[in-house]
Simulated assay, not measured.
Amino acid sequence: MQEHLTPQNLLSSSRRVRAISPSATKQMAIIAARVGGCVSLGQGVPSFITPPHIIEAVTHALKNDVGSGQYSLQTGMTALRQCIARRFLEEKKVSVDPESEICVTVGGMEALLATVMTVVDEGNQVILPSPTYASYTEQVVLAGGTPVYVPLTDKWELGLKAITEAITPRTKALMLCNPGNPTGTVFSDEQVLAICELAVAHGFVVIIDEAYDYMVYGGGMPVNPLSVERFRDNVISISSLSKKYALTGWRVGWVIAAARWMEQIMKVHDAATICAPTPSQIAALAAMEGDQQCVRDMCIELTKRRALCCKRLDRLSDYFSYVPPRGAFYVMSKYRFTDDNSKEVAIRLLEEAKVITIPGGAFGLGGEGHLRLSFGGEEKVIDEAFDRIERWLR
């Protein structure tokens, strides 16, 4: 029903924007800034600095290449798209046309939003295995769609029966982060491919977010279903270099999709950003073509931090239970010491113990009763945070 326009509501924000919620991660950071003296197990930012060889490449380009301060092609630098295509073939066995199937974006977030705005129409439903990355919900709502939460199992695995039962004629997409934020899960290749079979059978799109594909503990990269030819029209792949190369502030990622989808995604990309920042694309190319020892070193450190986080949680087994993370750098810890909702618990922990965590309820219904902890910070930060939590609980 159309809203009757008056001088008052002409000056109000749109219903689309009023329907979405601010990020819980950012809200907790704002509260922490007011409280002061906090340590963080909150925002998913690894503590590593951008590798020096990447900074040197960008500095050299800015000094010597006049094009480094100008727009790139709308789809991104040719050399970068070609590099992405090579990497996908080598690492994921996915053959991609760099001219028509790759668009470099302002981080993975823009890639996700441009994709959702392209795929999802008013009244469409989008299945979100939950707990899910919180921004998926807001993007779906912003596009006029309806999020449909399907709980993961108690081991944070996909419930294929429940997902099948959630599919309706209005189902347009399913969004999946693998490895998972916020759970730290790694969905099995068999389950991911089974989801894609459902997508083909029922005519919806699987939007797969691979921001953490490099960080799997004791295993290789998960399957990218674009490697299966019959899934090419039903899968859109999102990637980001933010975490892998410590480029969170550089804002560079990409979307890979069949040309029929990319032609439409590019319209949103152009309307929103024109192109990704050229210096950030230069950084991305230097990162992907340079020595990969920096990634291996960061993975070794994250493995140590995972072990420390799990050890500290084990000491608090009367207060928390958790599923050991198999990827990324998050753990969803179920608290046992209160029945209060997760936002109340997170705020109390922040204000009384000065430890930042993220309320699990922000990640969908399946996350309520949990706190998301990030172990991306240095070991001394993780230890200090848990020392404060122990004192607070005891």
Rank of each mutant, 00 (worst) to 15 (best):
M1K: 10
M1V: 10
Q2G: 04
Q8C: 03
N9W: 15
L11C: 09
S13D: 15
R16V: 09
R16A: 13
S23C: 14
T25P: 00
K26W: 15
R34M: 13
V35R: 12
C38T: 14
I49E: 15
I49L: 12
I55P: 08
E56C: 03
V58G: 00
L62G: 00
K63P: 00
K63Q: 15
D65W: 14
Q70G: 08
Q74I: 07
Q74P: 00
L80W: 08
E90A: 11
E90I: 11
K92Y: 15
K93M: 12
V94M: 05
V104A: 03
T105K: 08
E110H: 12
L112F: 12
V119F: 06
E122P: 02
L128V: 03
L128N: 02
L128A: 05
T137I: 14
E138S: 10
L142S: 04
L142Q: 10
A143N: 08
P147C: 12
I163P: 01
T164C: 05
L176G: 00
L176S: 01
S188R: 09
D189N: 10
D189A: 02
E190M: 10
V192A: 02
E197K: 04
F204L: 10
A211L: 10
Y217N: 10
Y217I: 06
P222T: 06
V223A: 09
V223F: 04
R232F: 07
I238T: 05
L241C: 03
S242E: 13
K244A: 04
L247H: 05
T248I: 11
W250Q: 04
A257R: 00
A259I: 06
A259Y: 13
M266A: 07
V268G: 01
H269R: 11
A272C: 04
T273L: 12
I274A: 13
T278Y: 14
S280Q: 07
R305G: 03
L313S: 06
R315A: 09
R315P: 02
D318Y: 08
F320Q: 04
Y322N: 00
P324Y: 05
G327P: 12
S333V: 15
Y335H: 08
N341H: 10
S342P: 00
A346R: 02
I347G: 00
K354H: 13
L373Y: 09
F375A: 01
E378S: 04
D383N: 07
D387H: 11
R388I: 05
R388P: 01
I389Y: 14
E390H: 03
W392T: 03
